[in-house]
Design a protein around this nucleic acid. Structure first.
Length: 373
RNA sequence: GGAGAGGUGGCCGAGCGGCUGAAGGCGCUCCCCUGCUAAGGGAGUAUGGGUUGACGCCCAUCGAGGGUUCGAAUCCCUCCCUCUCCGCCA
C-alpha cells in the first residue's frame, strides 16, 4: 500500500485519503507484532532449557550406577608393592605442589615442576600428533574466552551458568569450559558444502569450570580442578553418518589410551546420567591404581541436531539442494590432567619413580624415568 | 586508551524518504560470432524461510537492535565490527 502511495503521488494524484485510511494500521500492526514477539520469546526461553532426547540405544537408568559397560582393555592387576596415588607420587618427587596453588589462587588448582610438567606437555603433543597424523583431524587454535551466544550454541547456557567462569560483563566473556564451545561454534550461522564433510577438528585448550555442586567430591589431587588441559575432538557430519561417526570418534580417543598402555573400559551412559545436549555418550574410564577404580578420562557424544539447531549449523543436503541441520559430535581425546594422573599411577615403580611410557619418550628428550632430583 | 573514517549482493562500488532487492563494474553460467590464444555481441546471475507436481507466488534481509514515518539502505538513538593515525604492549 505504501508503494501505491508513491506510485499515485508520482502520477500526480491526490493521496490524502489513502494515507488517512492507512494511518490506523501502523499502531495496530505494532501491537500485534509485540504480542507475537512476546509469545515467541517465551517459547524460545522454554525451549532453551529442554534437554536433548536420548537415542533409542541409550539404556534407562537414574544415575551413573546404571551406566552399561561395553568392553574392557588392558590388565589392571596390582603390582606386588603398595601403590601410591598421584598426589603422594608427585609431592614426594617434589614436582607437584597443591599448597602453592592454593596460595596463588585457591583450591582445585595445581602447580607442577620439572619432568612432571614436561610429561604433562608431552601428553598434549603426543595426542595432537596422533589425531592429526593418524586420524585426519585438523589442528585448530581458538580463543579461550567466548561470548554468550557461543555458550548458548553448545548448550552450556542458559541452564548451566553457574558452572562457567564469567570474566567481563560488558560484553560478557566467559572462560571456555571445553574446546567444544569455540570449535563447534565455528559453524554457527554457517552453511557448509557437502564436500567439506565430515569436518574434523582437534584442539588443545585449557578448560575452566566452577565445579559448582561438587563441593565434597574429588577434593584430593588433580582429578577435579577449576583449570585443566584437554585435547578435544570435534566432528560435524552428514546426519545420516553421525552414529557411525560416534563409534569412530570414540575409537580415536581409545587408541590414545592403548598407545599409552593404560587399562580402560568403555561405558554407555544411561539416560539419567546423560548430559543436557547429548543424544548418546560413551565414557572412557581409565584404571587408577591409586583409587582402585576406573575414572572418566573421556566423554564422547553425538548431539545429533541439538547443538546445530541452537547455533544454526547447516550443510547443503545434496538430495534436496537445500540447507539442513548438521549433526555435531565431540569427545575428549583425552583429558590431559587425568591422563597425567593415570600415567603416574600406572607407571609408578616400587621406589616411587615413574617410568615414562614408550610413546612419550620422543617428546621428553628420550627420558625413560622420572625420579627425584 | 585518544582522534578520525567506514560497514550495501561472490568481489568492487553507486544509492534522491516513495515502482531500489538494490545502478554500474568484475566474476560466474548459457548462447552467438570468431579456424589458435585473445577480443567482441546477447541473455542470465543475492541469500534465507514458506508454499507449489512444476512455472511461480509470498515473507525476511543493505553490520545488529530499537525509533521516526502512510512508507527507511536512505533520517534519529544504542550496540557490534572493520580500517587509518597516535599511545601502550607479548
Amino acid at each position: 500500500m505504501s508503494k501505491e502511495v508513491g506510485q499515485r503521488k508520482a502520477a500526480g494524484e491526490d493521496v490524502a485519503e489513502l494515507m488517512k485510511s492507512m494511518a490506523g494500521i501502523g499502531p495496530r500492526l505494532k501491537d500485534v507484532e509485540a504480542t507475537l514477539g512476546g509469545v515467541q520469546a517465551e517459547l524460545r526461553t522454554l525451549m532453551a532449557e529442554i534437554p536433548n532426547l536420548p537415542h533409542t540405544s541409550v539404556p534407562a537408568g537414574s544415575s551413573e550406577h546404571d551406566n552399561v559397560e561395553i568392553r574392557r582393555w588392558g590388565d589392571p592387576s596390582q603390582p606386588v608393592f603398595e601403590v601410591k596415588d598421584h598426589v603422594d607420587l608427585g609431592t614426594q618427587l617434589g614436582m607437584m605442589d597443591f599448597d602453592a596453588a592454593t596460595k596463588l589462587t585457591g583450591s582445585r588448582f595445581v602447580v607442577m615442576f620439572g619432568a612432571l610438567s614436561t610429561l604433562h606437555r608431552a601428553l598434549i603433543q603426543f595426542m595432537l600428533d596422533v589425531h592429526t597424523r593418524e586420524h585426519a583431524y585438523r589442528e585448530t587454535y581458538v580463543p579461550y574466552l567466548v561470548n554468550e551466544r557461543s555458550l548458548f550454541g553448545t548448550g552450556q547456557l542458559p541452564k548451566f551458568e553457574e558452572d562457567q567462569f564469567l570474566t567481563t560483563s560488558d560484553p560478557s566473556y566467559y572462560l571456555i569450559p571445553t574446546a567444544e564451545v569455540p570449535v563447534t561454534n565455528l559453524y554457527r550461522d554457517v552453511i557448509v558444502e557437502p564436500e567439506s564433510l565430515p569436518a574434523r577438528h582437534v584442539c588443545h585448550t585449557p578448560c575452566f569450570r566452577q565445579e559448582a555442586g561438587s563441593y565434597g567430591k574429588d577434593t584430593r589431587g588433580m582429578i577435579r580442578q577449576h583449570q585443566f588441559e584437554k585435547v578435544e575432538l570435534v566432528q560435524l557430519v552428514d546426519p545420516s553418518r553421525s552414529w557411525a561417526a560416534l563409534e569412530e570418534l570414540t575409537a580415536h580417543a581409545a587408541i590414545i589410551l592403548e598407545k599409552l598402555g593404560l587399562p580402560y573400559r568403555v561405558v554407555t551412559l544411561c539416560d539419567g546420567d546423560l548430559g543436557f545436549s547429548a543424544a548418546k555418550t560413551y565414557d572412557l574410564e581409565v584404571w587408577l591404581p591409586g583409587q582402585q577404580r576406573y575414572r572418566e578420562i573421556s566423554s564422547c557424544s553425538n548431539f545429533e541436531a541439538f547443538q546445530a539447531r541452537r547455533m544454526g549449523a547447516r550443510w547443503r543436503d545434496p538430495s534436496t539442494g537445500k540447507p539442513a541441520l548438521l549433526h555435531t559430535l565431540n569427545g575428549s581425546g583425552l583429558a590431559i590432567g587425568r591422563a597425567l594422573v593415570a600415567v603416574m599411577e600406572n607407571y609408578q615403580t616400587a621406589d616411587g619413580a615413574i617410568t615414562v611410557p614408550e610413546v612419550l619418550r620422543p617428546y621428553m628428550g628420550g627420558m625413560e624415568r622420572i625420579d627425584r632430583g
